[in-house]
Nucleic acid binder design. Structure first.
Length: 889
RNA sequence: GGGCGAUUGGCUCAGCUGGUUAGAGCGCACGGUUCACAUCCGUGAGGUCACUGGUUCGAAUCCAGUAUCGCCCACCA
C-alpha cells in the first residue's frame, strides 16, 4: 500500500496563506451557529465592543479580537452553541469630528452642507469605513458570524432606541429640563461627565476688588470686598458674592451689596457654606450659569442666572463692552481693564483641574441649557447589586470596586446631543410645548396632551449620546424588543470582553439598561483587558507618532504571530508594552510549529501503517498531551488566556519538538526497525501532531489550519476525517500513562545528566563518547535497555555500558534509573569536579531543609497529610540522588 | 482630597484561593554545519520576590505601615 505525500514550503508565508484560509472558513460557513441549538449544547456568547466606524483598527482592537477569538474558537471546538456577533458603532461625535475634518479639506463644512446633505455624506463615509473594519477583522482571523453583522444605526438599533427611550419616559426616568451641562464650544454640543476629561493644569488665580455699594448703589471707592477667581471673563454673569457664614472677617458685609465692575450691577453679598474660608480671599464671585458650584449656590439662594458665554465660546451681549470676544481673548482684556481702574489686587499661578472635550481637546464650558436627561440612580442600584451579589463578575475582580464606586456616585445622564449624526430623540413638541414621546417609526399621530395633529408637531432636533444605543447592544442586536429566536436562544450572554477604559462608558451602561429592559444581567462575566502601549510604556497616539498598525504587523509576521505577541504573559486588566522581542517570539513560535510539521510530513515512510506496538516515546507524548489538554481546558474555562498560551507553548516547543520529535527520529531512523515499526511510529507522530494542532488552534488558527489540511491530504483518518480544524473537536484528554511517564522521566534525567557531563568535561559537541550507567535496580536495568537507543542519540553517547566495572569516577550524573558517567579521561573529569562538589553542597542544603521541616512536630501535626507526604517523598528522592552522586568508588 | 494598582534575575513580564529547589521570553556566557527549524539545538551564570513589622508549622502570596511609580474618581473659585 503506497502513501500520499504532502510537502510544506520551507517558510510559512503568512501574508499569502492566511487570507486564503479565511476564505476557506467562510466558504464552509464555519462561524455561523447551527440553525438550532444542538442537543445538549451549552450556549456561549461573547459580546464584542463594536469598533467606531471612524477609521481603522488599532492594536487595542487587535487584542480585543484575539482574546475573544481564542475563547470563541475554544468553545466552538468544544461543541458549545457559540455566537460572536460583529458590529460597528456609529460613534456620533467622533464620526462628526472626522467627517468635519475631511469636509474642511474640501472647503466645505457641516453648516455649508446643511443637515440633510451632511447626513448623506456621512452614510457614504460610513459605508467605506465599515467595510474597512470588517476586512481588517477578517485579516486578524476573527471568527465572527458575519451573517449577523450589525450597526448601531441600522433599523433594528433605531427601533430598540425608540422603544427603550419611550419606556424610560413613561416610567418617569427620562425628562427634559434646563440644567448646567458640559458644553464643547468646538463640537457645539453637550458632552457627558465621562466625555469631559479632567486635566491638571496651571492657571492663574486673580484677586479682584468688588467695591461695596453705597447708599445710592454707587461703588464706594474706599470700601470693597476682594474675590478670587480663575475666570475673570465670566464676571459679567455674576449675580452675587459669597462668603462663609462663620467667617468673622466678612460677617458685617453679609446682607450688603457689591457693585459689579464695568456693568455696575448690584450683587448681594450672601453667606454659604460652600465657600472655603482658607482658599483665596475667602470671598467668591457667584456665576451660576458658568460654574457647577455656583449653579448650586444660585439655586439655593434664588439668584438670577445670566449666560455670558455663547455656544461658540464667545461672550454674549450680557458682557457689555466685551461682547463678541472669544472667552480666551476676553480674559486678558478683562484683567487689563480691571488693572487699569485699580481693581486688580493680585494674581498668582494656580494648579487647577480643567475639563476638556474628550474628542477634540477643547476646554469645555459649563453652559445652561435645555437637555434630555435620564435619571439613572434606580438603574444603577440594580446594576450594582448584580455585581455585589455575584450574578455578574468582573475580571480582574478589583475592578468591581471601581465599578461600585462609580455606580454609587452616579449623576443623571445628559443624553441629548446637539449633533446630527445619530438617533434623533423621538420626542415631539406641539405649539404649546407639550411633549409627546413615541416609539413608532413614523412618529406620533397627535399630541398626547392637547390632541393637536402630527402636522403641527415638530420633532426634537437633538440626537442621543452614542452610548445610549451602545448600551442596548447585547440585546438590540438579537432582536429586542421582539422575542426573536436569536434573543430567546442567545440572551442573556456569557462573556463581555473589552478594555477597562470603557468600563463606565459602556459596560456600566449595558448593565444598567440591560437589567432595566430585560430584567436579567446581560452577561455573567465581564473580562477587561489592559492597554497596549509602546515599548517605553507610553500610550500610543497619532500625535506622538508611536502608533503600530496591527495590519502592517500582520502583513509582516502574520496574524498568528501577532496574536502570540499580544496575548501571552498578559494578565487581565494589566497594561502591556509591545516590544520588538515579543513580536519576534510570536514569529519564532509559528516558525517552530511550521518546521515541526515539515519534519513530520517529510518523515512519512513509503509504506502505510500496519498495527504495531506503540513506542515508549509515543505513549509518553500522548500522556503528556493529555495532561496539557486538561490544563489548557481548565485555563480556558477560567478565562486564563495567558495561562493557556503558556501551557500550549510549552508542550508544543519543549515536549513535542525538543523531546518527542527527537525520540521519534530515533525510531524512524534505527536500522533494525521494520517497515511496520516505522509506519507505526510515524502514524503516532502525525496523530499526536494533530492533537497538538487542536490544542493550539485557538491561539494559532491560521498556521494550525494549514498544517491540518496537509495532514488531511495525506490521510484523512489522521485528523479523524475532519477536513477543517476550525470545525474539529477540542481534544478530550488522553488517560495518563504512568509507566511511560516514569520511563521518560528516567531517560530524560539520564540524557540531561549526560549532556551536563559532556559540557563540564569539555567534550566536543559532535563527538561520540562512551557512557557507563550503574542501574539503580534490576527493573531500571531492563528499562534502560529498552530506551538505550534514545539515550544514545539524544546524549550522543556510544557505546552505553551497563554496570560499573569497579572503576567509577567522581563525576557522575544521577537519575531515577541509576547513576551514569562518561568514559572520558581523568583530566577532563577533574576539570569539572569543583562544579560537581558545588552541586553536592546544594543537594545537602536541600536535604537539610526538608529534614528540618519534617523534624518540626508542628509541621507534621498541622500541615495537610498530602503536603507532609510530598515532603517525605522529596527527601527520599534527594537522598537517593545524593547517594548516586557521592557513591563510594 | 478620596480610591485602585504596581514594585519579582540586565530588560519585558507570569506566579489563582499561603505548602516548588520562585518561572518564562529576550539579553548574556560557553559550545554546536547531528539530513524540521541558526526564526535553531545543547549547557550555564544571574533573584535576601521595594522596605519594616505582624499572622502562621510554613509568606513573593494574607494583614498593617513606609517609600517610589502609575492609573481612576472628585463641585475648593
Amino acid at each position: 500500500m503506497t502513501t500520499t505525500r504532502r510537502e510544506l514550503p520551507p517558510r510559512y508565508a503568512a501574508a499569502e496563506v492566511e487570507p486564503a484560509i479565511y476564505e476557506r472558513w467562510m466558504a464552509a460557513d464555519a462561524f455561523r451557529p447551527a440553525d438550532e441549538r444542538p442537543e445538549g449544547a451549552e450556549p456561549f456568547v461573547i459580546i464584542q465592543p463594536p469598533p467606531n466606524v471612524t477609521g481603522a483598527l488599532h492594536l487595542g482592537h487587535a487584542l480585543t479580537a484575539f482574546v475573544e477569538d481564542i475563547l470563541i474558537r475554544y468553545h466552538r471546538m468544544k461543541g458549545d452553541d457559540t455566537l460572536w456577533l460583529p458590529g460597528v458603532d456609529h460613534a456620533s461625535i467622533a464620526a462628526q469630528f472626522v467627517l468635519d475634518r475631511i469636509l474642511a479639506q474640501e472647503g466645505e463644512s457641516r453648516q455649508s452642507l446643511g443637515r440633510e446633505r451632511y447626513l448623506e455624506r456621512m452614510w457614504q463615509f460610513m459605508d467605506e469605513t465599515r467595510e474597512t473594519i470588517a476586512r481588517q477583522h477578517r485579516r486578524l482571523g476573527a471568527s465572527l458570524d458575519w451573517s449577523r453583522l450589525r450597526f448601531t444605526m441600522d433599523e433594528g438599533s433605531a427601533r430598540a432606541v425608540r422603544v427603550a427611550f419611550k419606556r424610560l419616559y413613561d416610567d418617569g426616568l427620562a425628562y427634559r429640563g434646563e440644567a448646567l451641562v458640559n458644553w464643547c464650544p468646538r463640537c457645539r454640543t453637550t458632552i457627558s461627565d465621562l466625555e469631559n476629561v479632567k486635566h491638571e493644569e496651571t492657571g492663574t488665580l486673580w484677586s479682584i476688588r468688588y467695591h461695596l455699594a453705597d447708599e445710592n448703589g454707587a461703588p464706594d471707592p474706599n470700601a470693597w470686598i476682594t474675590v478670587a477667581t480663575t475666570r475673570p471673563e465670566t464676571l459679567f454673569g455674576d449675580t452675587a458674592v459669597a462668603v462663609h457664614p462663620e467667617d468673622e472677617r466678612y460677617a458685617a458685609l453679609v446682607g450688603r451689596e457689591a457693585v459689579l465692575p464695568f456693568l455696575g450691577r448690584r450683587l448681594p453679598i450672601i453667606a454659604d457654606e460652600h465657600v472655603e474660608r482658607d482658599f483665596g480671599t475667602g470671598a467668591v464671585k457667584i456665576t451660576p450659569a458658568h460654574d457647577f458650584d455656583d449653579y448650586e449656590v444660585g439655586k439655593r439662594h434664588g439668584l438670577p442666572m445670566i449666560t455670558v458665554i455663547d455656544e461658540d465660546g464667545t461672550l454674549t451681549e450680557a458682557a457689555g463692552p466685551f461682547a463678541g470676544l472669544d472667552r480666551f481673548e476676553a480674559r486678558p482684556k478683562v484683567v487689563e481693564a480691571l488693572a487699569a481702574q485699580g481693581d486688580l489686587e493680585g494674581e498668582k499661578p494656580h494648579e487647577m483641574v480643567i475639563g476638556r472635550c474628550d474628542r477634540c481637546g477643547t476646554v469645555s464650558e459649563p453652559r445652561l441649557s435645555v437637555q434630555w436627561f435620564i435619571d439613572v440612580k434606580p438603574l444603577a442600584e440594580r446594576a450594582l447589586a448584580s455585581v455585589r451579589e455575584g450574578r455578574t463578575r468582573i475580571i480582574p475582580s478589583h475592578f468591581e470596586k471601581v465599578y461600585a464606586h462609580w455606580m454609587e456616585n452616579i449623576h443623571d445622564w445628559a443624553v441629548s446631543r446637539q449633533l446630527w449624526w445619530g438617533h434623533r430623540i423621538p420626542a415631539w413638541y406641539c405649539p404649546d410645548d407639550h411633549i409627546t414621546v413615541s416609539d413608532a417609526a413614523q412618529g406620533p399621530e397627535a399630541c398626547v396632551v392637547c390632541g393637536r395633529p402630527a402636522s403641527e408637531l415638530r420633532q426634537e432636533t437633538d440626537i442621543f449620546d452614542t452610548w445610549f444605543s451602545s448600551g442596548l447592544w447585547p440585546f438590540s442586536t438579537l432582536g429586542w424588543p421582539d422575542p426573536t429566536p436569536d434573543y430567546e436562544r442567545f440572551y442573556p450572554t456569557q462573556v463581555m470582553e473589552t478594555a477597562y477604559e470603557i468600563l463606565f462608558f459602556w459596560v456600566a451602561r449595558m448593565m444598567m439598561l440591560g437589567l432595566y429592559f430585560t430584567d436579567v444581567e446581560p452577561f455573567h462575566t465581564v473580562y477587561l483587558h489592559g492597554i497596549v502601549r509602546d515599548p517605553t510604556g507610553s500610550k500610543m497616539s497619532k500625535t506622538k507618532g508611536n502608533v503600530v498598525d496591527p495590519l502592517e504587523m500582520v502583513e509582516d509576521i502574520g496574524a498568528d504571530a501577532l496574536r502570540v505577541a499580544l496575548v501571552s504573559g498578559n494578565a487581565p486588566g494589566v497594561d502591556q508594552r509591545l516590544t520588538e522581542s515579543k513580536l519576534v517570539t510570536g514569529r519564532n513560535f509559528t516558525n517552530k510549529l511550521w518546521n515541526a510539521a515539515r519534519f513530520v510530513l517529510g518523515a512519512q515512510p513509503e509504506v502505510a501503517a500496519a498495527p504495531a506496538a506503540e513506542s515508549i516515546a509515543a505513549r509518553w507524548i500522548r500522556s503528556r498531551l493529555g495532561r496539557a489538554t486538561e490544563e489548557a481546558t481548565h485555563q480556558l474555562e477560567a478565562l486564563d488566556i495567558a495561562g493557556y498560551t503558556a501551557t500550549v507553548y510549552e508542550v508544543a516547543w519543549s515536549d513535542y519538538c525538543d523531546w518527542f520529535l527527537e525520540m521519534a527520529k530515533v525510531e524512524l531512523r534505527r536500522e533494525d526497525a521494520s517497515d511496520a515499526d516505522r509506519a507505526a511510529t510515524w502514524r503516532a507522530t502525525a496523530e499526536t501532531l494533530a492533537t497538538l494542532l487542536r490544542l493550539l488552534h485557538p491561539l494559532l488558527p491560521f498556521v494550525t489550519e494549514e498544517i491540518w489540511s496537509a495532514l488531511h491530504d495525506v490521510d484523512p483518518t489522521l485528523v479523524n476525517d475532519e477536513p477543517l480544524l476550525v470545525c474539529a473537536a477540542w481534544p478530550s484528554p488522553a488517560p495518563v500513562d504512568e509507566e511511560a511517564e516514569a520511563t521518560f522521566e528516567g531517560l530524560s534525567a539520564l540524557v540531561r545528566g549526560a549532556r551536563n557531563l559532556r559540557t563540564e568535561a569539555g567534550v566536543a559537541a559532535g563527538a561520540w563518547v562512551p557512557l557507563v550507567v550503574e542501574p539503580a535496580d534490576a527493573d531500571a536495568e531492563t528499562t534502560i535497555r529498552s530506551v538505550e537507543p534514545y539515550i544514545a542519540a539524544l546524549a550522543r553517547v556510544r557505546p552505553i555500558q551497563l554496570g560499573a566495572d569497579g572503576n567509577r569516577p567522581e563525576l557522575v550524573a544521577a537519575s531515577p534509573l541509576g547513576a551514569a558517567w562518561l568514559g572520558v579521561d581523568a583530566a577532563a573529569a577533574e576539570a569539572a569536579r569543583t562544579r560537581r562538589e558545588a552541586q553536592l553542597a546544594e543537594l545537602d542544603r536541600n536535604i537539610q531543609r526538608v529534614r528540618d521541616l519534617l523534624a518540626n512536630p508542628s509541621f507534621v501535626e498541622r500541615a495537610p497529610a498530602a503536603v507532609v507526604e510530598r515532603e517525605r517523598r522529596r527527601l527520599a528522592d534527594l537522598e537517593e540522588e545524593r547517594r548516586q552522586l557521592a557513591a563510594e568508588r
